[in-house]
Structures are given as structure tokens and as C-alpha cells.
Amino acid sequence: MIMNRKGRERFLDAVTGFETAVREQDGARSEQEFQKIHRHFGDAKQAEIDAGAPRLAALLTQLPAGPRGMVAVTVGACVERGADAGRCAPALLDGLADAVRGAGEFCARWTETGGGDLPDPETDAPDDAVLERVGPEPAMAWWTLPQWEMAAVAMLNHPAVRTGLDPAVRTGLLTSLRAVQEASGHDFKCLTYALLVLDDAPLVVLHRESGAGFALRMTGIGDNFQLHTLLADVLAGGGHVAARVPSAQEAAVCRDAPGQVPTTGSFNLAAPDGGWIWNEGTPSDIPVVDGARLLVLDPPPYERGWPAGRFFPGMTGDLTLERVLGADETARWFTHVQPAT
């Protein structure tokens, strides 16, 4: 117990030492103290994690591009252990925006200087030729973007961070990130999906076979596999429509229970124009009509199974039924709907 207590005390001491070294621009000591932070992270008390995380986040703007990504990952790890995401997120998401912009500049300069296959930021190492070709800052942005992705998802797991993110900032990040993905062919799917998560979002669902309509509200749902299972739980499980009812465990792992369990689809998800809404996509794919996302449920054209669960294991999700729509209101919503394709 004494050894454990001392190990825990050393975590915050290492954070203090790292702060001092960074402010004094002492690179060698910064590296030594950062290694101590990692060494004592596992034994740190919750109070130390809570206190240390925002202090590390506040240092991000003072760090060179390479170490900045590693410190961002550490901040994310602290948040996953319970540190306040709201206090850490602003500085970290600012750093993410810089990294995405820098990665875009890297891709542009790579193309301008001859093109070819881009180096893989997760398996290749930057060498002098690459640094000279594109410049050190864009190169470091490209190489550290996977680290920023990991750290940012840890922040975006929290609804307060997602709802507190300026919509213009979110749109800018998605636009820049998509440009990087198109230019590089590299998939930053986790970050993209995290930025697309909807919270407290109205959803109108029309069941084509029965002609019934429902007003629901969704929050924290990472992909349409998760949404599909929750729709089946709420509507079929609630006795509102005839379809396969998922088990209690299948529904639970799509809300907040750990793990995954096998499930089978209950519907085919469709847009008002008749096109399919793919399970592999996100709820943001559902078109907005008159202020709500409008989804049509058709019978499944074939049996399809997948592991029920959450795309983001650290993000709780939910779908709630607010009311069953009356016949006149349902008929008005159906005027927006085309036949299934």
C-alpha cells in the first residue's frame, strides 16, 4: 500500500516537472518528465488524474508538433479515466483543427512535389527527404493526425463536449477532414463518425406496411447498426409494429452495457425518396424534412446479422419514443415519401 501511494503521488509531480520543462523550453528534461508521467499514470489516484489532465491540455499550444500529439493522447487517456472532458476539450479540439489543416497542407504539398503514394502515418517514419519535400510542420501534422483522432474521440464520447462544439467549427473540421481523406486515401473513420454524432435530435419514423408514424428522439448513436437495433427494441419491442424483437441484451449493449452480442436485422431503413439508408452509415445520413430527420421502415429484403453494440464503446446512446403520431399527422408525413426502391 505504501509503495502504491508513493507511485500515485509521483504522477502529479511528473506533471509539474513537465510543465516547468516545457515553459523553460528544456527539450531533454521535457522528454524525461513525460516518460515519468507515463510510468506513474497507472498508479495515479483519481484526484491526480482530475488535476493533471487540464494542466497537460493547457500546455498543448506550447509544444512542438511531434510531442503535441503524444501529450494529446495522454490527455485523452486521462479523460477516459474520468477527468473532466469539458475542461480539456477546448485546447485539444483547437489542436485537432491545427493538425487537420496541417495534414491538408501536407497532402497538397505532396501532390505539388511529384505525388505518389503517401507515407502511412501509422507504419512509416518521417525521414529527412520527406521533411525537406513538404516541410516539418505539415509532415508532423500528417504523422500525428492518428494521435489527434484518438484523443479527440475520447473528448467527443461526452455529450457535453459534442453539444458545446460550435456548429461552424464542427462543419469546418468535417470539411477539412474529408478533403484530407480524399487527397490521401487514408480513412479517419472514427473521427468522422464522432463529429457526425447527433444529440437530442428529433426523428420521425414511418412504418410503411402498417402506415403508422412515430416521433422519437436520438442521442449519442454512432452508426446505423446501433440505430437499427434500438428502433427494433423501441418499436417492435414496444408492440407498435410487427418485426423481430431484439433481446434485452442486444438493446442494452446499444445503450450503455459493455460488449457485443449477435443480432439480426428487423427492417430495411429507407430515405423518403425510397433510397436505402445503409447500416454502415450514420444517423446524419437520414434526410431532414420540416425540421426532423425522416426515416421509413420497410421489411428486410433478406436476413442480415451483425454484432449488436456501439461503434464508440465509450459513448452511451439512446433512442426514446416521444409519441405515436395521429392518423392525420402521419398522413402529412407520408406525403413526403416516395415508393420503396
Rank of each mutant, 00 (worst) to 15 (best):
A58D: 13
L59K: 11
L59S: 02
L59G: 06
L59V: 08
Q62L: 08
L63F: 13
L63W: 08
L63V: 03
A65N: 12
A65R: 08
G66S: 06
G66W: 11
R68I: 10
R68P: 15
G69Y: 03
M70Q: 06
A72R: 01
A72M: 02
V73A: 08
T74I: 04
T74G: 13
T74D: 11
V75S: 10
V75F: 13
V75C: 13
G76A: 04
G76M: 12
A77Y: 06
C78Q: 09
C78T: 09
E80Y: 04
D84T: 04
A85D: 08
G86F: 09
G86D: 11
G86E: 14
R87Y: 11
R87L: 13
C88S: 06
A89K: 05
A89N: 14
L92Y: 15
L93E: 15
D94Q: 09
G95F: 07
G95S: 12
L96P: 15
A97Q: 12
A97V: 08
D98I: 02
V100E: 10
G102T: 02
G102C: 12
A103Q: 15
A103G: 05
G104E: 05
G104T: 01
G104F: 03
C107I: 03
A108K: 11
A108H: 07
E112G: 14
E112D: 12
G114M: 02
G114W: 00
G115N: 05
G116N: 10
L118W: 14
L118M: 05
L118D: 10
P119T: 01
P119F: 02
P121I: 00
P121A: 00
E122Q: 14
T123Q: 08
A125N: 04
A125F: 13
P126K: 01
D127G: 14
A129I: 00
V130S: 06
L131M: 03
L131R: 02
E132F: 00
R133F: 00
E137W: 07
P138C: 04
P138E: 10
P138F: 05
P138D: 09
W142Y: 09
W142V: 11
P146R: 00
Q147V: 06
Q147F: 13
E149I: 08
M150H: 09
A152M: 13
A152W: 10
V153E: 12
A154G: 05
A154F: 13
M155N: 13
H158V: 03
P159W: 06
V161C: 12
R162V: 04
T163Y: 02
T163E: 12
G164Q: 09
D166V: 12
